[in-house]
């Protein structure tokens, strides 16, 4: 396997120059997730303006994949309404669970398509998903119906999130 499939330029760029990093106020809820196997951590805060995610702020410590993923998440989801945000969420989870067999929806996923290569490295899928699972938790705590429009959520809840 070629390691540059994993470390796409886009991922390294988000890692070295993260977008929107730092925890901001005000926020509706936050969630802190840890990957117990490697100690990577991420905290996600969501701020809501009615149904719109007015801000998704984050902080964390970990590998390039988990931290770049948080940066991409911030960029993709901030400003969206929650329904759209969870459509993106579902598409990202599907991409990461696809073992490299899923063709990413570029329009929906934007920079997150760069993570397609990560799906081929089972040991790293959890890194990429860490911020997304924390986001889902934070949104649920903020009162967002996170299961709406996400029909096979039961199957996906198998993804371990600490």
């Amino acid at each position: 396997m070629q390691v540059d499939q994993l470390y796409q330029e886009i991922i390294l760029d988000h890692y070295k120059h993260p977008h929107g990093r730092g925890l901001r106020e005000p926020y509706a809820a936050e969630a802190h997730h840890v990957n117990p196997t490697c100690g990577d951590e991420v905290t996600i805060r969501v701020a809501l303006d009615d149904d719109t995610l007015s801000d998704v702020s984050y902080d964390g410590m970990g590998c390039s994949i988990s931290q770049a993923s948080a940066s991409v998440l911030h960029e993709l989801l901030t400003g969206r309404d929650t329904g759209q945000a969870f459509a993106v969420h579902a598409a990202f989870v599907e991409l990461m669970s696809g073992r490299g067999q899923v063709t990413p929806e570029e329009e929906l996923l934007g920079d997150a398509v760069a993570f397609a290569g990560v799906a081929r490295y089972p040991a790293r899928v959890k890194c990429a998903l860490l911020p997304w699972m924390a986001f889902k938790d934070a949104a649920a705590r903020a009162g967002v119906d996170v299961e709406a429009g996400n029909e096979d959520s039961n199957e996906r809840s198998e993804v371990k999130t600490a």
Binding site: C38, D40, C63, I65
Partner: peptide
């Protein structure tokens, strides 16, 4: 550089090390 990334690039070179806590 995070150890996970170190381990991943080393693996691409055939070098098997452990990363984590």
């Amino acid at each position: 550089i995070h150890p996970h990334d170190v381990g991943q690039v080393l693996d691409a070179e055939g070098v098997e090390v452990r990363v984590g806590h």
